Simulated assay, not measured.
Amino acid sequence: MLKKLAIGALALMFLAPTLGLVSIGLVMNTAALAACTVSGSGVSVRNVPDSLQVTTADGYTFTLNKRQLTHAATIITVGSKIEGVNRDALKISLMAALTESTLRMLANTGTYPESGDYPNDGNGSDNDSLGLFQMRPQSGWGTVAELMDPEYQVAAFFGRPTGPNYPSPRGLLDIPGWESMGLGEVAQAVEVSAYPERYDNYAPVAEEILVTLTTGGASASATTPAGSLSNASNTSSKVVFPLPEGTWVQSDDFGPRIDPISGEQTTHHGLDFAAPDGTPILAAVDGVVTVAEFSDNWGGLIVIEHQLDNETVATAYAHMWQTGIHVTAGEPVVAGQHIGDVGSSGYSTGAHLHFEVRPGGTNGTAIDPAAWLNDHEAANLPEATTGPSNCEAGGTR
């Protein structure tokens, strides 16, 4: 649960390594949940659509796929059978799983190689965390085998004397007075995250999931999403800004500049946006992740390839902490999806996002991201100038 910050070494050149595809396994039979009804809290799962478009409290929209919604149905189904779990508790659990894993069952082969042998939706790298709620064996939540079982994780999250981890770590029902606490506050009390403010951002998403899965019918946005994960390779024209509104300031331009660390004349191949450490980084367009790794050069690096206006283009996002990468190579993503967190690793002077746009794909030659974002109505930024610029806040070469 607790985020551990790792500081990368300085480097002089940008490398663009690629990763092999991460195998993804289905955790459950989605058809079996399509008409599942449960009792206990009065909440019943009646429908699992193929996709659902949702919007966070800070106004960003993304699409959950069938697999993610199936995990949500598991949380509702298992939780509804536990005495003391009401609708608010279910909503809190969805908020927690959305924040911790984006409703994905994550292995962690870097710490536990055997975790990759269990059905999973990709590979995480946050300390020794596993699964939907990113629970840690070393913190006493359970064994690797137990935590790679989504139903076990749900039972552990809710806790109580009959729960698998009682009396410690505490589940939701083990927290005195949780009913009178804020929803995000309860999620934080269970998760003990380094970023407690994030859970409330997913409250409207959790509510939309509950309504959709328990009323027997998806919303209009669920049946006609702007971008579905199952269709991520199709041409898309939707472009969103890679950071939430109001969280950033532009700290360096694209083009010639004086390097803020070496003091030498160099060329900056992207834009830098200074933002608080841990600010969510958002996928700019529907696409497929081609790079998701931590290196000495650019710290945490994500590259996504998109089919945009019938052409291939890649976007790159750099300088995340190792624990701030939330996607894996080969994973489809949608515009606005939370893919990582702002950090300051690698060749960096402070917390910021270095953002690049590369026509042609992952290894294409970078162009001015400001012009590209403006052309696609995702921003109103000053475009590159011919003169040098200087980094006044968090930045990198």
Rank of each mutant, 00 (worst) to 15 (best):
D117I: 15
T349A: 00
M95D: 02
V38G: 09
G263I: 02
R67K: 15
L271Y: 01
E264L: 02
Y60H: 11
E114Y: 08
P113I: 02
T385I: 10
W372T: 02
Q337D: 11
D117G: 14
G217P: 12
R46C: 14
G25Y: 09
L52P: 06
N363V: 09
Q322R: 12
V186M: 10
E305G: 02
S389Y: 02
G84Q: 15
D149V: 04
D121E: 10
A89I: 00
L132Q: 05
V239P: 02
M135L: 14
D368A: 11
T312Q: 04
A222G: 14
P161R: 09
H306G: 13
L229P: 07
G177L: 00
F355W: 14
D253Y: 08
S262T: 06
G360L: 03
S221R: 12
A393K: 13
S262Y: 08
A32H: 14
A393M: 10
A107V: 11
T386K: 04
P204W: 14
A187L: 01
P242I: 15
D128I: 13
G110F: 04
I325D: 08
V190Q: 03
G131P: 05
Y112M: 09
E146R: 04
P176L: 00
G217F: 14
G324R: 08
P225N: 04
G364T: 06
G140Q: 01
P161F: 13
Y152L: 07
W372G: 00
N165S: 07
N127E: 11
G184S: 07
E179R: 11
A31P: 07
H319D: 13
V43C: 14
E392W: 10
R87Y: 00
T74G: 01
T365F: 02
L103C: 04
R46F: 12
N127F: 05
E100P: 04
E191V: 10
Q53P: 08
V327D: 00
P119D: 06
S168Y: 06
A107S: 12
G25E: 11
Q188E: 08
E356A: 14
D128Q: 10
R397V: 04
G216V: 11
E207P: 00
I304M: 06
P176M: 00
N47W: 03
T267M: 05
N47I: 12
T74R: 11
A206G: 09
H338Y: 13
L10F: 13
G8Y: 10
Y60G: 01
A274G: 07
P119V: 05
A73I: 08
Q53E: 09
R136S: 03
V85W: 13
G394Q: 05
E114R: 12
A393Y: 06
L301D: 04
G159I: 12
I76D: 02
V48S: 03
E245F: 07
L19K: 08
L229S: 02
P113V: 06
T349F: 01
P242Y: 07
